[in-house]
Computed example of a mutant assay.
Amino acid sequence: MNRQLKKLVVLVACGGWLLGCKSSATLPAPVATDARETASSRYFTNPIMDGADPWVLKKDSVYYSCGSGNGTIYVSQSTKLTELGTRVPVWKAPASGWNAHNIWAPEIHYLQGKWYIYYAAGKEPGGPFIHQRSGVLESTTDSPFGPYADKGMLYTGDSLQTPSSVRWAIDVSPFYLNGQLYAVWSGWEKNASTDRTKQHLYIAKMSNPWTIASNRAKISSPTEPWETGGELDLNEGPELLKKKEKAFLIYSCRESWLKEYRLGQLTLSDTLADPMVASNWVKSSAPVFQATANVLGVGHCSFTTSPDNTEDWIFYHAKKSEKPGWQRDIRLQKFTWTADGYPVFGEPVPSGVPLPVPSGQR
C-alpha cells in the first residue's frame, strides 16, 4: 500500500478528529490538490461530544447550540453540524430565587427579531426535583451570546389570573403555527411532594416570546404500552417538526435515566386544526426512534437541516451504559421521509461507524 493510500485509510478509520485523533496536523501534510485529503473530512462518527438534551438552531447558514452545566447556560456557534464550536457562557443562575438551581435543557430561539433562551430551573438544589419551573431569557443585543436579561418565570398552570397557581414544568419549546406563537412543555397535573409524578404534554398560546397568554391544554399523556411499564410514566421534551404540509410533535417517553428512553410522535390531523385540542393530535402506534443493543436510552431530540438544506438531521442523546443514571453523550444522524410525508428516523447508528457529513458541509 503506498504512502498516500495509507494516509487515507488512517483518516477514514478515525472519522476525522471527532473519533479521537488529536489533530490532523500529526499526520504528514497532504498536497492541497490531493483528492484524498477531502475524503477524510467527508465522514464523522458518533458520539460527537459528551452532554445531554441537545439543542441546535440554524440561522443564516450558522448552527447555534445551547446547553447547561454547573448552573450556567452556554451557547456555541459553528458552520459545521458535526462540530458545534466553543461553548461560551451567556448566563449564570442567581444565588437565590425560583431559578437558582437545577438548570435543565435550555433552548435558544430567534423570535420577533431577538434571541431568547428557554430553560427549566428550581429553587432548591438536587432532588427531589419537585420545584422545577420554566423561564425565559432575552438577549439585550442582537447577538446570541448576549448579555441576557431574565424575563422571569413562564405561567404554566390552569388559572392565568392567579399567577401563584403555576405548575411544575420543564422542556418548554416555542413555535409558530398559522401565525400564532405557542409554547409546548412537559408538566404535572398538580404540584406534588415527589418527583415520581406522571408527566404530560401541555400547550398554551403566547402573546410574545416571554408571556403565556392562555391557560394550558393537555394534549398527551403516557397511556400506550410502549410509553409505560417502568418506574415513572412520562411524556417530555416535545419538539415541533414541520414539513411537507404536516406538523408533528416528537417527544421522549419512558425514564430518562434508563436504557428504555425513546421517542414517540404526535401528528396534527390538519395543519389548520387547533393544536390546543387534544383530539386533533394522533399518537403513533409505536416508538418512532428507540434503543438498540448498541445505542441505549435515545431521546430528547432537536432537528435541523444540512448546510445546503437538502437533508434533515436529528440531534439526540444516548446513555453511556446500561447502569441507571444520567451519563450521556450527544449524537446526530440523517433521517428521511415517507412518500406521504411522515418522518423515518430508522435506528440509532452505533458508535464509531463512519457516516457521511451533512451535505454541503465544508
Rank of each mutant, 00 (worst) to 15 (best):
N215G: 14
D233T: 09
G51C: 10
E124D: 12
W91R: 01
G152H: 07
T304H: 07
I103L: 04
R328P: 06
S23A: 14
G71H: 02
D142C: 05
L258H: 13
K114M: 05
A35W: 13
T223M: 09
A25K: 15
Y261E: 07
D171M: 03
E260H: 12
A273K: 08
L27H: 10
A25L: 15
A204D: 07
Y148K: 01
L5V: 12
L18D: 15
S164Y: 03
L240K: 04
K218C: 15
V344W: 00
D312H: 12
Q290P: 01
F303M: 02
A52Y: 12
Y64I: 01
N102Y: 02
D50A: 13
A32G: 09
D270G: 08
V136R: 02
N208V: 03
C21S: 11
S159D: 15
T304Q: 02
V56N: 05
T33M: 09
S76L: 10
L154H: 00
D50F: 08
W313L: 04
R262Y: 01
N208R: 06
P147D: 07
G230M: 05
N235D: 13
S159Y: 07
E347T: 15
T86H: 04
S134M: 00
A183I: 02
A286V: 02
T79Q: 12
V353E: 10
N235K: 04
S252M: 06
A278E: 10
G16A: 09
L137V: 00
Q327E: 13
W326A: 05
T38L: 11
K244N: 14
I219T: 10
P28M: 11
L332P: 05
P348R: 06
L296N: 05
L5K: 12
G157C: 08
G264H: 08
C66Q: 05
E124M: 07
G346R: 04
D233Q: 12
D195K: 04
V344T: 13
T305V: 09
A39P: 00
G297R: 04
E189M: 10
G127D: 12
E227T: 08
R331C: 12
G135F: 01
D142R: 10
P28D: 14
S321V: 09
A192E: 14
A32Y: 10
G360I: 08
A273V: 03
E138I: 04
K244H: 15
N70M: 05
S139A: 13
L355C: 10
V295A: 09
C66F: 01
S359G: 05
Q77R: 15
L241Y: 03
G51W: 07
P350A: 14
R216Q: 13
Y118L: 03
S40D: 03
V88A: 02
T141L: 06
L137W: 01
N70G: 11
L201F: 01
P358K: 08
G152L: 07
S143I: 00
K6I: 03
V277D: 11
P125A: 10
E260M: 04
V298C: 13
L11Y: 00
A293K: 14
L111G: 02
G15M: 04
V75K: 06
F44V: 04
S24I: 07
S285N: 13
K123D: 13
G264W: 02
G157I: 07
K22N: 14
N191Y: 10
S165L: 11
N235A: 03
I314Y: 00
Q327L: 10
S65F: 05
L332C: 10
L258K: 15
T292D: 11
V344E: 13
I212E: 03
